[in-house]
Design a protein around this nucleic acid. Structure first.
Length: 219
DNA sequence: TGCCAGGCCGGGT
DNA sequence: ACCCGGCATGGC
């Protein structure tokens, strides 16, 4: 291992350690069931979680937050229920394509879906229209306890601002950076991504490039 | 008020 | 293989 890699490895571990020591457990993903996490992962695409929560509560309050319930629900009605989450027409389609996958290949049984081997499951999820790399990894890690690190826009922005990546780094580049340097534990992946989102929302906004209070300011 | 939020797809180069 | 417009609500 050369010096560059060693520095990189230390920085990645430092980020995790500093964030965990300053912010502690994040208790992710919010949700009462694995299925709810999957729905939330699709609804939160490019969307504030507050809005997603309203949409999920709508479904929950109407007893529709089950695979069979949503699979049977008319798509235009589904769109109305999830309206607060934004992009409601496209997201209703995306939810439906996931539900077709779940219900037609796994009898609406999410445990059966997650019993697939990781590499196989990830490929299948990426074939579902509306599920890209971040959504697939979120579903796998937070709903299914598969060891997949989740990368998002905050991760990219934070690493870029600290000169840990080049601006042309892609999703898989960044994912590998964490997976090759962090301990390979579900709990570490879980907390690390959640901590990055926390810090991103609070200290690394687009319009607020520098923040003295950011725990990562000295790395 | 305008900008942003825990992306992804499809069409055009 | 990239690049970009479109998708839409609610909060600060």
């Amino acid at each position: 291992m050369n010096n560059n890699n060693k520095n990189l490895s230390e920085k990645i571990n430092l980020i995790y350690r500093i964030l965990f020591n300053s912010l502690g457990h994040q208790y992710w993903w919010p949700g009462d069931s694995a299925f709810e996490v999957c729905v939330g992962a699709i609804l939160t695409q490019n969307t504030n979680w507050q809005n997603v929560k309203k949409a999920i509560d709508n479904l929950k309050n109407n007893g529709l937050l089950t695979a069979k319930g949503l699979y049977a629900l008319d798509i235009s009605m589904l769109a109305e229920f999830i309206r607060p989450a934004g992009y409601y027409n496209i997201k209703s389609k995306r939810l439906k394509s996931f539900l077709s996958f779940l219900c037609e290949e796994f009898s609406c049984d999410i445990d059966e879906m997650f019993s697939l081997e990781s590499e196989t499951l990830r490929k299948k999820l990426l074939d579902v229209k509306g599920i890209g790399p971040e959504t697939a990894d979120s579903i796998m890690l937070y709903a299914g306890n598969h060891l997949q690190f989740v990368v998002d826009a905050y991760t990219y922005r934070i690493l870029l601002r600290h000169d840990i990546i080049h601006e042309d780094a892609g999703y898989d580049d960044i994912k590998e950076l964490f997976q090759q340097n962090l301990p390979g534990e579900i709990n570490v992946y879980n907390e690390c991504h959640a901590l990055i989102v926390n810090i991103g929302k609070n200290y690394c906004k687009k319009t607020n490039p520098i923040c003295d209070k950011c725990p990562l300011k000295n790395i």
